[in-house]
């Protein structure tokens, strides 16, 4: 799941200020789950923006709100087409993917990002999310006991821990567990410590040459040559 964080209201208000009619657009999938841009957040942000302009007495903006199922798939954005004529800008509470899909579908309307897309992760408990995957394109979880060192080790190193951990916590962030201590413990538990003893050659960063595109369809030549 993609995890995002709302931008500060100050920034949101600032990026909205050049426009008059602004649609606040939520996304019903990932950002709903992480409390950043679902229908409820849309209405809260709407209220805050209204409150902000009520207090400053600025040239009034007209905010409206709507939430689509998923901003990243352009078919879901069809529903916005009739509204498009009446708006000057869209404040998207979708992730970066949503913002770009919108920009593609509505080339004449500025799309304003309302959230900072943070990472791909999982919810630990209500209100706490942890990063779990960096989409490195070369998954090695089979050897690391299902714990990703590329994501969860601050240095993303592959051949065991650095010497920085204290009390099992990472040198870069004392709140977080050292991934390599976790990996070690889990491999011991699984009886697969040999996986950690193995040498891991340098990563193949060619797999994440940007921008990436994934193609699973096969080119089929018409006519049975």
């Amino acid at each position: 799941m993609i995890v995002a964080e709302q931008k500060s209201m100050e920034e949101i208000y600032r990026i909205c200020s050049p426009y008059e009619k602004i649609l606040i657009l939520g996304c019903g999938t990932c950002v709903t789950v992480c409390d950043a841009g679902g229908e409820k957040e849309v209405s809260i942000i709407h209220s805050v923006l209204d409150a902000a302009q009520a207090r400053t007495g600025d040239k009034p903006h007209i905010f409206s709100e709507y939430t689509v199922k998923r901003q990243c798939d352009i078919e879901f954005l069809e529903a916005l087409k009739d509204k498009a004529g009446e708006i000057d800008a869209i404040l998207s509470l979708g992730c970066g993917i949503g913002v770009q899909s919108l920009a593609e579908v509505f080339p004449d309307i500025p799309i304003l990002p309302g959230v900072n897309t943070a990472f791909m992760g999982a919810s630990r408990e209500w209100g706490v999310w942890d990063e779990r995957c960096v989409a490195c394109g070369d998954c090695r979880l089979v050897d690391t006991g299902g714990i990703c060192p590329i994501t969860r080790c601050a240095k993303g190193i592959l051949n065991g821990p650095c010497a920085g951990a204290k009390g099992g916590k990472c040198e870069a962030n004392k709140e977080m567990d050292c991934a390599w201590v976790l990996i070690y413990q889990h491999l011991v538990h699984l009886g697969h410590l040999e996986r950690m003893r193995q040498y891991y050659p340098p990563r193949n960063f060619h797999t994440i040459l940007r921008p990436r595109r994934l193609i699973i369809k096969t080119e089929i030549n018409p006519g049975g040559k």
Binding site: I157, L158, G164, E171, Y199, P202, F205
Partner: peptide, 21 residues
């Protein structure tokens, strides 16, 4: 050491290789 402990906290850390590599 990680970038986090130093004086250029906003820098991108590289770690293309680790010490063994």
């Amino acid at each position: 050491d990680s970038i986090e402990v130093g004086d250029h906290k906003e820098a991108k850390s590289v770690f293309d290789l680790d010490s063994v590599q």
